[in-house]
């Protein structure tokens, strides 16, 4: 078990060493980079906005109805909503969700290329297949994730305002007061920095699982599942360390 994990780690590091090499052709890299930006980044905006909107609303409702009581200042609900969204939800939890969406997508795409010999075809042409396939994905996701984090925080706040304006659970004035209460910009940057690490984990670990598929379509399915599970676990563990480190 431990031996197998060490072996996987070794394989992963070797793959990364092959991945992080100067692309043979910049124009091919940029073409792939643009494509992955669309596929992994732009295509995730919708789900990020949707989930963040609802979570922002739900956190606000929960705090207001179930936690806030008479002796607490009225800004507590808005304040807590903002901090939860910025500190954890829009980085760690959102990346867990993206691990499911993007991770399985990457693993099955590369895995299918492996079993249909498209990766062999690249190797035979003398193309560094790891760098050609994986580097644009890692670069695209890592460079796009700050935008997703920003969108997520914003959508969460919009969600909170929905509870105020549409459901009258909290007064807009209280909410605004809370959202602006002792704002620490660093908390936002902390979420962004953490998300960069998580994005790297999602793109590289899923690529590793896809790249090493052996067999047929069943193995592609298994690789895709393993990729999501491993990414999630790694995100959770690294979240603890990163939070400690950055706080």
């Amino acid at each position: 078990m431990i031996r197998k994990m060490l072996q996987s780690l070794g394989e992963y590091l070797l793959l990364m060493a092959r991945t992080f090499q100067r692309p043979e052709r910049m124009r091919m890299f940029l073409k792939q980079y643009y494509k992955e930006m669309m596929a992994l980044g732009i295509n995730s905006v919708g789900i990020v906005l949707l989930i963040s909107l609802f979570i922002g609303a739900v956190i606000c409702i929960q705090i207001k109805l179930n936690i806030q009581s008479a002796w607490m200042p009225s800004w507590v609900s808005g304040y807590t909503t903002r901090e939860i969204m910025m500190l954890e939800f829009s980085s760690a939890i959102m990346c867990l969700i993206l691990a499911g969406k993007v991770g399985s997508n990457i693993a099955s795409e590369i895995g299918t290329m492996r079993i249909t010999q498209q990766i062999d075809a690249l190797d035979i042409m003398g193309v560094n297949s790891a760098s050609y396939l994986i580097l644009p994905k890692v670069a695209a996701l890592v460079s796009f994730i700050p935008i997703l984090v920003t969108f997520s925080v914003a959508a969460g706040i919009v969600g909170a305002y929905c509870t105020a304006y549409l459901a009258n659970i909290i007064t807009p004035a209280d909410l605004t007061l809370g959202l602006q209460h002792s704002f620490t910009p660093w908390y936002f940057w902390m979420g962004v920095i953490k998300s960069l690490f998580f994005a790297f984990i999602i793109a590289s670990v899923s690529s590793y699982y896809g790249y090493n598929v052996k067999g047929g379509s069943i193995e592609v399915g298994k690789a895709s599942t393993s990729a999501v599970v491993s990414c999630s676990v790694l995100i959770l563990f690294s979240d603890i360390f990163l939070t400690q480190l950055l706080s």
Partner: peptide, 15 residues
């Protein structure tokens, strides 16, 4: 390898 062309059993075109 740049002097080699190869035809794979399943064509291996980039889909």
């Amino acid at each position: 390898r740049r002097e080699i062309g190869m035809l794979f059993q399943g064509s291996a075109l980039f889909d």
